[in-house]
């Protein structure tokens, strides 16, 4: 059965990889993001790969007014509606230390912006019955670490939001998947020191689709990150506060 997917933050390489897989299995996609000129090329790619419909819509997580036309467009689409959220921003922690006002932007991009969008979309999903919401969090949200705890805090907030949304949409037969990718080989991590076991975006996208099919609730990808984060979460706070990992 063909679905219509709204992809928020569609320019990211993870989003692009997922969009391609959706297109190849015959789903329609609406690509939302800021760089609409470039997204037009992603939409063309999706059409060539088999998407019956691939459209671009401008969206800025920091501008809720930009959500309205997208929600209207989705309301006009027939059939099952699905959403995948890839938005987020991660300025270096030392930039945030120098300018704490940056925190607002990080939290809006990674948490409150997408949450506001999903909150407005939820009634539409409930009305149709069924559908999937994929929310991309991060392993960084599992524990506050000295290197990026503002980004981590925003992603933790988003993960908790998704947990609640899952609880709600489950009643309408819809499913919410929280994805926690480890290090992924994207523009965001290009050139950052200390990356290890970096996964290609295509692998993350395959894992996401498989988890959607199995209706998994939380996905760590690649899977070994579940083990790594289980250990990191188990470290007692008195010890953790002295560590720098």
């Amino acid at each position: 059965m063909s679905e219509t997917w709204i992809i928020l933050g569609a320019s990211s390489s993870m989003a692009r990889a997922l969009t391609r897989k959706l297109a190849e299995r015959g789903d329609s996609v609406i690509l939302a993001g800021r760089d609409t000129a470039d997204l037009a090329r992603d939409a063309a790619d999706a059409r060539v790969r088999g998407a019956p419909l691939a459209e671009v819509m401008a969206m800025d997580a920091r501008d809720p007014d930009s959500f309205t036309p997208i929600l209207d467009r989705l309301a006009a689409c027939e059939g099952t509606l699905c959403a995948a959220v890839f938005v987020g921003s991660m300025p270096p922690q030392d930039h945030i230390d120098a300018d704490p006002t940056l925190i607002d932007g990080v939290v809006t991009d990674s948490f409150t912006g997408p949450a506001r969008f999903l909150q407005a979309l939820a009634p539409l999903i409930e009305e149709r019955g069924g559908g999937t919401v994929v929310g991309v969090g991060s392993v960084a949200g599992d524990r506050g670490r000295i290197g990026n705890y503002v980004y981590g805090a925003a992603k933790a907030g988003f993960a908790t939001y998704l947990s609640g949304l899952r609880n709600r949409l489950n009643r309408a037969g819809a499913h919410v998947l929280t994805v926690k990718p480890g290090f992924t080989d994207t523009a965001m991590t290009w050139g950052i020191e200390g990356m290890f076991l970096v996964a290609p975006p295509d692998k993350v996208a395959s894992d996401i689709l498989r988890a959607v099919e199995k209706r998994r609730n939380v996905l760590y990808t690649p899977m070994f990150w579940l083990g790594i984060m289980t250990i990191i979460r188990a470290i007692p706070e008195p010890i953790f506060k002295k560590m720098s990992i």
């Binding site: 760089d35 090329r41 994207t186």
Partner: peptide, 9 residues
């Protein structure tokens, strides 16, 4: 090395 993912980059 740069590895751009978009036309602008």
């Amino acid at each position: 090395l740069a590895r751009p993912e978009r036309v602008s980059a």
